[in-house]
Write a protein that binds this DNA or RNA. Structure first.
Lengths: 347, 347
DNA sequence: GTGAAAGCGCTAACAG
DNA sequence: CTGTTAGCGCTTTCAC
């Protein structure tokens, strides 16, 4: 009354490592070693087990692996799946981790700290081997807490949180690039659309871009000609910004939108009122999202090379999974992409 | 030499169900029942266990749950994270499954059957409770194979595969809508940009849209005025289509692009050559992606209400997880969104 | 209504 | 170099 035999004809279950081991006539431990490319297996055994795995169509059970070892899966948190910038990052990331037989699973988290924390927890609960957090809105404390549990790389946010890596664009330099370009073609009165959607924390890109804008204006003796338009970095925020800009006593001849999506909103609102860019004013975005290149848009913008960010983030994360403990913080050089929304002022 | 006491001061581990049970002074089995809202627990016990969970900050371990029961996670496969249509679906989906305490994890799979199959396997290996497959490019056989393993809902593809549900737009009707609109404002010579990027399988949206286009043209006695432009549904494909259109003996006065992204490519190419829409020809897209609404684009297009698709897909999947076995196939009514890229022909 | 005990598929010690 | 044996945290019979 001990031996249990599988009832054939019933829904055939997936092969397990026990089946493989039995089929190859070895112990499960050995089969496991082959699976993990671990040390101490003879070539003949490796081959035999491999063949059994193939024959049985064996695929390891991620969950079971995760219970003891690792899941070979890395989790990526993004606010929104529909962000061209995020998608480039994801591509870059996959490019470096796939060859190492890691997979990427994405969790979309929305734009508030609470739901982002929840999304991060979900990833942790799934026993990911490491996390890529893209432009997270959670506090540094939260970041550090997560980083104590598993390897974390933050992308697109200059964080001072300890115990994790980060890679982001040099937003200060990027903003300066936009200013230089506008000043060079003759603009003086320049407005910056600031993002105040979220709890302003000093290490967020928007803060650095604002700072970079103000510094650059100051360097050109244009501190007095700089205006800050308070809005949010969304399509709707861009539309609203137009009205705030128009309400100025001396309207600017150029607007630096801070983000492409905001610039798009501005473009839309102007268009609805039969106004043109750069006739109404010159416009610069930030991100060089794919849309910005589309003919009728042709937005002048700042590129922050998301693909490289993704690749570097993947590299750093793999290193951390492999055991590195010192933090690394990468700052990537942005570059200006001049298109048709900027022109010399009308005088 | 039996009692083991946790060494305090060491890195505090996450609370497990054993800790909760101990803390509440009940068995792990009971704790588990409370966790799962299972039958047969007294109110007093439920309350006691709940409090212990809160106090210990207990979060169940997805992997361990998945080993025996379910992971309360549903997997979503998309070709590309950067597709506005997919993102709306994802939002709709989350809207219905979150309240039931299910999470969504996304895997991006690219545009070929092989890597999509791989992405699907990855999701299965993670023991998802169900799968949402968005516009999958894999064969019906593959779909059925997966559907035998776990609940599956296909979105955006009319599939005849057995054992799964599907929800998609009525592409035939959508294409007809575009034709009606163009014919109504006076067009006769109309071109359709067809997608031949992938192995043409009869149940793909592109086939239905092509069919719908030809049928509608026929109904208006315009079969001879219909042209098919062979290209691919990408930005680049749209650009190329322009040259093929120009090469026609009698160029069409209107173009139905089959997808917004293609229309965007067309718009871009025209713009680069200083040609305008609808002056050069009227243009209709398909999808009503967010970009199409942006002022300078203002693309006339067909909306297939992705949010409803997402919601319905979630509902169907939950039903299937709950045990439904009969297949359901939903067909959603599309609707035309007329904007500025269509106008009566120049005569 | 509640609890004890047997696994889920895999990996990690440790023996041989 | 290979095999035995405990678990990982949870759910699930099945007794009580």
């Amino acid at each position: 009354m001990v031996s249990a035999q599988p009832i054939d004809g019933a829904k055939r279950k997936r092969a397990t490592i026990v089946d493989v081991a039995k089929h190859a006539g070895v112990s499960t431990a050995s089969a496991s070693k082959v699976l993990r490319n671990a040390y101490g297996v003879s070539d003949s055994m490796r081959e035999r087990v491999q063949r059994s795995m193939d024959e049985l169509g064996y695929r390891p059970h991620k969950l079971a692996r995760g219970m003891r070892g690792s899941t070979y899966t890395i989790g990526m948190m993004v606010s929104d799946i529909d962000n061209p910038f995020f998608s480039v990052i994801a591509d870059g990331l996959r490019g470096v981790v796939h060859p190492q037989s890691y997979e990427v699973l994405i969790s979309t988290a929305g734009y508030d700290a609470a739901s982002q924390n929840q999304a991060i927890e979900a990833l942790v609960d799934h026993q990911m081997d490491g996390l890529i957090l893209v432009a997270p809105l959670v506090s540094n404390d939260d970041l550090e807490r997560v980083a104590r549990e598993l390897p974390v790389v933050v992308v697109g946010r200059h964080t001072s949180a300890a115990g994790l890596d980060s890679v982001s664009g040099d937003d200060r330099v990027g903003a300066a690039l936009a200013v230089e370009h506008l000043v060079e073609i003759g603009h003086r009165r320049i407005a910056f659309v600031a993002n105040h959607q979220t709890d302003p924390e000093s290490d967020r890109p928007e803060s650095y871009r604002l700072e970079g804008f103000l510094d650059a204006m100051g360097r050109h003796g244009l501190a007095a000609a700089a205006t800050i338009i308070d809005s949010t970095w969304t399509l709707e925020g861009g539309r609203e910004a137009v009205h705030r800009i128009d309400a100025q006593d001396e309207p600017p001849t150029a607007v630096f939108a801070g983000a492409d999506i905001t610039a798009l909103g501005i473009l839309s609102e102007l268009w609805d009122n039969h106004r043109q860019v750069p006739a109404a004013f010159s416009l610069v975005g930030y991100d060089n999202s794919r849309i910005s290149a589309i003919g009728p848009i042709a937005l002048t913008t700042v590129d922050q090379s998301g693909d490289i960010m993704g690749r570097e983030a993947g590299r750093l994360l793999l290193e951390r999974i492999a055991g590195r403990v010192e933090s690394e913080h990468l700052l990537l050089e942005p570059r200006l992409v001049a298109r048709s929304t900027t022109a010399p002022p009308a005088v």
